[in-house]
C-alpha cells in the first residue's frame, strides 16, 4: 500500500538571499535574475519518490524582510523541517540565520529538522564556510552550499531534509507510546554534536 507522506518545510532567512529562487529552481526548474520580492509567503508542493515512499513536500516560502519576522510562527508552527537560507556574499544574512535558530529552539516544535543553505555559492564568499558548517553541526543541522542560478546543491538539500524527516517519522512510529520522548528521538537520530571547535581555524 502506497501512502503519501506529507512533509511541511518552511524556508526562513534574510531578504534577498534567494529563498524564492531556491524553491523555484527546485520545483519548477526555473531561475530568474530578477525575482520579485515575496510579500507574505508563497506555497509550492513537490512530490517525490523516496526509496519507494511517496513524499509530498509542502514548501512554504516566507518573506525575508525583517518587517515580516513576526509572521514567522504561523509558518513554522507545524513544520517538520526548516530550511534556513543565507547569502554567502552577505555576512549579516548569516547572523539572521543564527537568530532564526534561536527563535526556532524556543518556539518551534521540538523535533523540527533544521537545514542550513548557503546560497549563491557561484559567487565569492564573504562568510567563512568552515565556520558556518561548524555552526550547523553544533545545532544538529546539515549545511549545504547551494546556487539557484547554477543549480548546485538544491536537490541534495531537499532530499536530505526529506530523508531526515522520514527517518524521524519512522523512528517515531516504532515507538508509538513514547511520543512524549520526541526530543530524545531527535538526538538519537543525529550524530552527536562535536565538541566545541578549538580556537585555531585557518
Amino acid at each position: 500500500m502506497m501512502r503519501t507522506v506529507p512533509i511541511k518545510v518552511v524556508l526562513l532567512g534574510d531578504g534577498r538571499v534567494g529563498k524564492t529562487s531556491l524553491v523555484l529552481r527546485y520545483v519548477n526548474a526555473t531561475f530568474s535574475e530578477q525575482q520579485t520580492p515575496t510579500i507574505q509567503a508563497s506555497y509550492l508542493t513537490k512530490r517525490l519518490n523516496f526509496n519507494g515512499a511517496m513524499v509530498t513536500l509542502a514548501i512554504w516560502d516566507t518573506a525575508g524582510q525583517e518587517r515580516f519576522h513576526a509572521l514567522g510562527p504561523i509558518y513554522y508552527r507545524d513544520a517538520d523541517a526548516a530550511l534556513l537560507v543565507y547569502d554567502i556574499t552577505d555576512k549579516d544574512s548569516f547572523d539572521r540565520v543564527k537568530s532564526w535558530v534561536k527563535e526556532l529552539r524556543k518556539m518551534a516544535p521540538k523535533d523540527i529538522i533544521l537545514a542550513i543553505a548557503g546560497n549563491k555559492c557561484d559567487m565569492n564568499s564573504q562568510v567563512d564556510l568552515k565556520d558556518s558548517e561548524r555552526y550547523a553541526a553544533s545545532i544538529g543541522s546539515s549545511h549545504f552550499n547551494t546556487s539557484a542560478k547554477s543549480n548546485i546543491g538544491i536537490e541534495e538539500t531537499f532530499l536530505d531534509i526529506a530523508r531526515r524527516v522520514l527517518e524521524q517519522k519512522k523512528a517515531l512510529a516504532e515507538n508509538v507510546p513514547a511520543s512524549t520522548q520526541r526530543k530524545t528521538m531527535v538526538i538519537i537520530d543525529e550524530p552527536p554534536p562535536p565538541p566545541p571547535p578549538s580556537k585555531c581555524c585557518s
Binding site: 524564492t20 524553491v23 523555484l24 519548477n28 526555473t30 510579500i39 509567503a41 508563497s42 506555497y43 509550492l44
Partner: peptide, 12 residues
Amino acid sequence: MVKGVKQGPSII
C-alpha cells in the same frame, strides 16, 4: 493571504 507562485517560464 498567500500568494501562489505562478509557473512562469523565463521571460524571453
